[in-house]
Write a protein that binds this DNA or RNA. Structure first.
Lengths: 341, 341
DNA sequence: CTGTTAGCGCCTTCAT
DNA sequence: ATGAAGGCGCTAACAG
């Protein structure tokens, strides 16, 4: 027995297709009694709307854009790759996605790009950006024009975004701290912490979470002042090298930033000392480092998941649907040598 | 500018819609030269097929069934719940999914259920079952009748399934071992291991992986013989209680099985001793145990992900499509107190 | 307020 | 080997 269609509703309720459609789409111009009758029939015969057919008739299509920093580290290369793949995939779903890459750390340029977007044809944007007042305003403007705005990776808690897709970076920092604390055991040691810049909200939050758990639960461990390596592997190598030379007794390293290849070099150069190392993001570098034992754990966020989730959200927002909450939850993943795959 | 459609192809190639359709769907009855011309036009104008419209015209719908053991532990309750949710969701995608629950550990009953399935209307099944010869044969039969068969959660390596969706349980066991090894540090200790039954392939593999890494990398740790608790929490409580009483110096516990509430009871009853505990699957029990520090880590597989992935695969197999490999990879997740969410 | 009608992009008889 | 025409389930003018 085939599924009931709008025709079945019309027949059973004794009305026309147009009326059924009005009820289905909550459009005005139908007598309450009629609405009621149609609703009843819908319920009775167990009608389920065929979304695909509806979208076809509506000639609905989606225009989304990802706004991301034009950085070139492994993480951002990966992000770009994942979005590109999503672009290809989305073509069959009548969904056009484009990428706008804006200079990092330049709120003005970013705002300029946001203003350029044609909010007439645009249905949604997914943005990774620091939260400055100008950016907050630009986001507000887009939202007012009916564009769905999703924050990704780095949260924008005070902006009027529809949703944030990414991990809780405070919890991520706490997780890193917990791992190191448990690995290190009860003897007192020093931990070296390296961040990218303390401008990036995600990095700041990780550091915050890390510090919090260390003081709460591992007071015998001494966390050294943060070294800023500006996501630059050369600088990272130099700074870490210098730090380790100055304090050879350092027992562990927590790397918040990107540019981990420099870290690996610094660690392997001067070496027989066994140190526990936890870093962020699974890249070729960090994967190799896990495999050969230079890193002990990597805290990862699944970029593919983030991008797909953002797209699902923009689409759901565009047609006022809701989605499976659990599927959209981005997890703080702990990757060790043995669960690399 | 709107997307090119079949009409555009027809116009540009100087043929009719029917011919275009034949080329599009690789159906015979078109002169090679014509095929070539149409193909060229398709490429030129950048035509992308609207799958939704195609399925609509085709009146395509999908019939899938999940075959799972009728167990009632937290893990299986969760599995059932997730499938039920997927069933509701799938209705809008012209996809009908049903659940067949079969007695656990009864290959005959399972085979009988499989034979009952109407392979005429069925497009795919996702099955969790031990791999016996009869089951292998039943699977082969279904496949021969054109049904897509996906193994889930517990692998069926020697059966002719299209894909397996789940984690590598050997690696999961190794991950548990690595965690405990690192937590415990260099002093020699005893580890208690509790399994469900050594019939279930997934449990056996976890134990195997665990043992392997312990002998390879932590030879100073003494792994006690496996205790079988048959996924029963009462039995679990009793056996663990007895084991801890007999050897109070046990420094860690690895729980492969379900029935963890018994484990928690046994551990908290007799107590001030600090023991490291790693278990599998995130349930209400294990979540609470992580929160209050009874468990140190939980190895988890995302059941929602597994179910959604299996559905995507059955659908892709049914229409000979391929999908994003990385999205279908089920990860071995390490959950600590701090990355619970 | 309600109904008629013509599509949306694609597939599929049935002719030619 | 090719084409014309109707229909899949739903929506949206345009009439009444």
């Amino acid at each position: 027995m085939p599924r009931p269609t709008v025709h079945d509703i019309a027949k059973n309720a004794g009305v026309s297709l147009a009326t059924v459609d009005r009820v289905l789409n909550r459009r005005p111009g139908v007598r309450p009694a009629t609405v009621e009758r149609v609703r009843e029939v819908i319920h009775e015969i167990g009608y389920i709307r065929d979304v695909a057919a509806a979208n076809l008739a509506r000639q609905r299509n989606y225009q989304f854009v990802f706004v991301i920093p034009d950085l070139t580290s492994a993480f951002f290369t990966q992000l770009n790759g994942v979005i590109s793949e999503a672009i290809t995939r989305s073509l069959v779903d009548r969904t056009d996605i484009s990428i706008v890459r804006v200079p990092a750390n330049d709120p003005h340029a970013l705002v300029a790009e946001l203003e350029k977007l044609d909010s007439k044809s645009l249905n949604g944007i997914a943005i990774m950006a620091p939260e400055t007042p100008q950016i907050r305003d630009a986001i507000k403007r887009l939202k007012d024009q009916g564009v769905s705005v999703i924050g990704i990776i780095s949260d924008l808690p005070n902006s009027d975004v529809d949703q944030f897709v990414g991990i809780n970076n405070i919890a991520a920092g706490r997780t890193a701290g917990l791992l190191l604390g448990m690995f290190l055991g009860p003897q007192p040691v020093d931990i070296l912490v390296i961040a990218g810049s303390m401008q990036a909200r995600d990095h700041v939050e990780r550091r915050q979470g890390f510090d919090a758990i260390m003081t709460e639960q591992f007071p015998h461990i001494n966390v050294l002042p943060t070294v800023e390596a500006w996501d630059d592997s050369h600088l990272m190598e130099e700074l870490v090298g210098r730090a380790l030379a100055a304090r050879p007794e350092i027992g562990a390293v927590y790397s918040i930033a990107s540019g981990n290849s420099g870290l690996v070099k610094a660690l392997t150069k001067r070496c027989p000392v066994r140190r526990f190392v936890v870093a962020h993001e699974l890249t070729d570098t960090s994967r190799a480092a896990l495999e050969n034992g230079v890193f002990d754990a990597v805290i990862k966020q699944d970029v593919g998941h983030i991008v797909r989730s953002a797209i699902r959200m923009m689409r759901a927002n565009s047609d006022g649907r809701d989605l499976i909450a659990s599927q959209e939850k981005i997890r703080i993943e702990v990757v060790l040598k043995e669960n690399l795959n």
